[in-house]
């Protein structure tokens, strides 16, 4: 198990290199001159050239890339063009909000999705199941930003129950968490339902019933424990997406998270922050994935024996 985790951590190195190369290339060929944006449109040409030289923007692509990787390995992923503060600090300041938002989103989606999926599976084609499946379809098809705006319109503007922006008090977190959790809840519901449907037809479920075990324990213990693997996979993926991809939700609710930082930085051609941000998201995503793979071993002993 330890060896397995170590191997997985080592595999992060090529992943990081690949991600860096792709982002670096994309940013390099994005139109727009950072030096000009930093100094303003009316800045004298001489100063722009001087700044370009300072930032090393005129060096060949590979030299720039090499320099970036060389520094990154030592923990320095550059300074923000706009604030001149280290990118790592800028990101870490914003990360707690994003993490909190993602965690709340997952909490909402899991506590909605798993019970709904279980009930749907045990009462397949019932009225409950049909309503839940229509709701799940709506949940995945509703665009995030539209849903967020509708929630603000209804709960903030009309009912005045929750504030429409900010992210420090619990009441401020309700609407963003709902917005972010809805589509994940829908996906988790569908996955739980199909996974449970497959498991409850298995022979060992009949064995559990033949022991005289109560139906609730047959379903919630015997069946659910066997249905968990695909459900955990989906939850992990969703958590990963939410960590990096809450851009829209953060923008709508004015939450100072990593997603919004990235959007602002892209607009300002603030290359180091964008690169750092993407790299950071890639790392968190990989870690969540690793965590999910480790969780598998605790859920299914057959997988544990393969992790050697």
């Amino acid at each position: 198990m330890h060896k397995y985790i170590l191997r997985r951590l080592l595999m992060l190195v090529p992943v990081m290199l690949g991600v860096t190369l792709i982002v670096f290339t994309m940013m390099h060929f994005t139109p727009g001159d950072p030096a000009k944006i930093m100094l303003g449109e009316s800045a004298p040409e001489a100063e722009v050239i001087k700044l370009r030289e300072e930032l090393g923007l005129d060096d060949p692509f590979l030299v720039q890339f090499g320099r970036y990787v060389f520094n990154a390995v030592q923990g320095d992923i550059g300074r923000s063009y706009t604030t001149n503060r280290p990118v790592a600090i800028e990101i870490m300041e914003r990360f707690p909000s994003t993490l909190k938002l993602a965690a709340l989103g997952v909490l909402v989606s899991v506590s909605l999705g798993i019970p709904t999926g279980i009930i749907s599976a045990t009462r397949q084609y019932s009225l409950f199941d049909n309503i839940a499946m229509v709701a799940a379809l709506l949940g995945v098809s509703m665009p995030n930003f539209w849903q967020g705006l509708m929630l603000i319109l209804f709960f903030s503007v009309q009912l005045k129950w929750f504030p429409s922006s900010g992210f420090s008090t619990p009441s401020q977190m309700v609407l963003p968490a709902l917005t972010l959790g809805t589509s994940s809840a829908a996906i988790i519901t569908r996955m739980t339902r199909s996974s449970m449907l497959e498991v409850i037809r298995q022979d060992y479920i009949r064995t559990a019933r033949a022991k005289g075990q109560a139906e609730s324990i047959v379903i919630n213990k015997h069946a659910l424990n066997n249905a968990l693997i695909p459900i955990i996979t989906v939850i992990g993926l969703q958590f990963g997406y939410l960590l990096g991809g809450a851009v829209l939700t953060e923008s709508i609710f004015s939450i100072p998270g990593v997603g919004r930082l990235m959007v602002e930085s892209i607009k300002a051609r603030n290359f180091p922050v964008v690169q750092g941000g993407v790299l950071f998201i890639a790392i968190t995503f990989s870690f969540v994935n690793l965590l999910v793979d480790i969780l598998y071993a605790f859920v299914d002993p057959r997988i544990k024996s393969q992790y050697k």
Partner: peptide, 28 residues
């Protein structure tokens, strides 16, 4: 009733199933 039957199943009447490969819960 089902709850009366649960007291009999596995206790007074029990069953050995056909396929041992699928009759046991793999995660217990």
């Amino acid at each position: 009733s089902q709850s009366e039957l649960r007291k009999i199943r596995g206790n007074k009447i029990s069953m050995i199933f056909q396929d041992p490969m699928t009759s046991l819960n793999p995660v217990m």
